[in-house]
């Protein structure tokens, strides 16, 4: 136990007095949140597009071709670990395409594409859960399939799947802990740096776990709050 106190003192020395917290919060935490949030935003856009293709009536050739393409996309991004996707983008794709991308941007793009595959399935469920009568009513008024989808179906679908999207955000936040594979500095990396200074990792990692838990708890609260607000707009006026 004395050992533990000693270790704690050592960690606190570096964290508070040595001002390592500035790097943890200013770089690590910010990057983690930026990657997770922008990843989710890109994911929602891509996921909605894929889901729209998936639920489209398939009389014509174009929707059928698009459908195949989306199946391939989802298959790839769900079928390979996100670390592999990061490595492919950073070490294979970018050099082959001949452009330099910052590791942070690489992470945002890859996390966006990856989460798009997952969100598409969530969104598809959400769209299917909306009463088909809503689409019929829109079409009967002379609105096109796309307009009805965008203005009527998707907003209701998003409301239905909000709790699940919250889960996706939480999963993304936790998944960001692998971005140091492509030299991006996140929460995990900053705590490892602290540990590296004295080869003492117990307290830094314990503290890191605590921080992840707090972030996730805050996100959960936020989602609850948004959900309640949305539901209110339905009942009262």
């Amino acid at each position: 136990m004395e050992d533990f106190a000693l270790k704690w003192a050592g960690f606190w020395e570096k964290f508070a007095v040595g001002e390592a917290w500035k790097r943890v919060l200013g770089v690590g935490l910010v990057n983690t949140l930026v990657i997770a949030l922008s990843g989710l935003l890109i994911g929602i856009v891509i996921g909605t597009l894929i889901a729209a293709v998936k639920v489209m009536p398939k009389y014509k050739r174009l929707p059928r071709a698009l459908d195949r393409l989306c199946t391939l996309y989802v298959g790839f991004f769900r079928g390979t670990p996100i670390v592999v996707q990061l490595l492919i983008a950073y070490y294979i794709l970018w050099p082959l395409l001949g452009f330099y991308a910052d590791s942070l941007y690489t992470c945002i793009i890859v996390f966006g594409l990856n989460s798009g595959a997952y969100v598409s399935e969530i969104m598809r469920g959400g769209i299917l859960s909306v009463d088909p009568g809503q689409m019929e009513a829109g079409r009967a008024l002379g609105l096109s399939y796309g307009v009805t989808m965008l203005k009527i179906i998707v907003p209701q679908a998003v409301k239905n799947i909000l709790p699940t999207l919250g889960n996706e955000l939480i999963a993304l936040v936790k998944d960001t802990s692998v971005v140091s594979f492509v030299a991006c500095v996140d929460l995990y990396k900053t705590f490892t740096e602290i540990g590296n200074r004295s080869y003492e990792y117990m307290i830094p990692y314990l503290f890191m776990a605590l921080m992840y838990i707090v972030i996730v708890a805050l996100i959960t609260l936020l989602i609850r709050f948004v959900e309640r607000r949305l539901r209110k707009s339905d009942r009262n006026h």
Binding site: G133, Q134, E136, A137, A140, I152, K159, D234
Partner: peptide, 12 residues
């Protein structure tokens, strides 16, 4: 114009 049995007003 079309009117449905289940009304189908836009809920959102």
């Amino acid at each position: 114009g079309m009117v449905f049995q289940q009304f189908n007003l836009f809920n959102n």
